[in-house]
Structure formats: C-alpha cells, structure tokens
C-alpha cells in the first residue's frame, strides 16, 4: 500500500445525511485493517468536522488520504469562514442555533475535540471565502 485517497461530497444543511462521509470512512478503514483505536480517533474528529461543514458552512468536500504511517483528513468548505479562530477553539464556544442544540450538537466541543484527537491540526480560513481544516493522525 502506498497511498489511498477517498473523496466525499458533504451536503450543506442536510442534518439527516450528516456523518455519512465519516461512516463510510470508518468502514473502509476497518476493511483495510487499520487499528481500532486509531480509527476511533480519526472518525470522531472527522465526524465533528463533517457536522461543522453541514451546520456552519453549507457543506463541502472531505478527503481522506491513507499512507503507510499517516492518515490525513482534509475538510474543505466555501462557507462563511471563521472570524476568530482562537475563540472558536475554546471549549463551549458555539454560534449554533437552538434548533441545532436540540438535535444534540452545538455544545462548542467540536473543534476542541478535533484538536484533541488529531496529532496535528491546521485551520486555514478566510471570512466570506471558506475554511479548510487539515488533520493528521499517525498510524
């Protein structure tokens, strides 16, 4: 195995479908025999990021690259961007609506969780243009 790349379109504002890309990624990582503890970390981080793309950014594209020692998840959207990244990274900070909160998300734990579970995370964002989050996981 040198490199495997999976690409998923993530539909914006479709809460029913949200998490589908992460679910697919989980079963594919299982299929190729990645360790369960690593799958868990990748999938929790990716799922939080996918939900963010759905509820905050009108959807986007998720790309998962698997290399012999590294899994990279790139979540790219053309949404509204993040005005204050430092603030957004704070546990509990959320701009989610009551409606989203009633669905069990919007606790402001997504970005902190993503940071916690990945070995490296970078946020590249421009207000009005979009956000690209890159997370790396050592295998």
């Amino acid at each position: 195995m040198t490199e495997i790349v999976w690409r998923f379109d993530v539909e914006g504002n479709n809460f029913e479908l949200a998490g589908h890309a992460s679910q697919q990624t989980k079963s594919r990582l299982k299929q190729i025999g990645v360790n369960n503890d690593i799958i868990r970390k990748v999938i929790i981080a990716m799922y939080e990021g996918e939900i963010n793309m759905v509820i905050h950014a009108n959807g986007g594209v998720a790309t998962v690259t698997v290399q012999p020692n590294l899994i990279t998840v790139v979540l790219a959207d053309t949404g509204k961007g993040i005005e204050n990244v430092e603030l957004a990274m704070k546990e509990g900070y959320s701009t989610a609506t009551t409606e989203i909160r009633e669905l069990g998300f919007g606790a402001g734990m997504g970005l902190p969780n993503m940071k916690k579970y990945s070995d490296d995370m970078t946020i590249d964002t421009t207000v009005g243009e979009g956000t690209t989050i890159t997370m790396k996981f050592k295998i």
Binding site: F15, E16, A18, G19, S22, Q23, K26, R40, I43, I44, Y47, I51, L103, G104, F105
Partner: peptide, 11 residues
C-alpha cells in the same frame, strides 16, 4: 434523530 445512531456507531 439519526445523528444519535451515527454517534453510537462512531463510538
């Protein structure tokens, strides 16, 4: 909602 099942699945 469906995300409850997805969350359980991820975990």
């Amino acid at each position: 909602n469906p995300q409850v099942v997805r969350t359980a699945l991820m975990m």
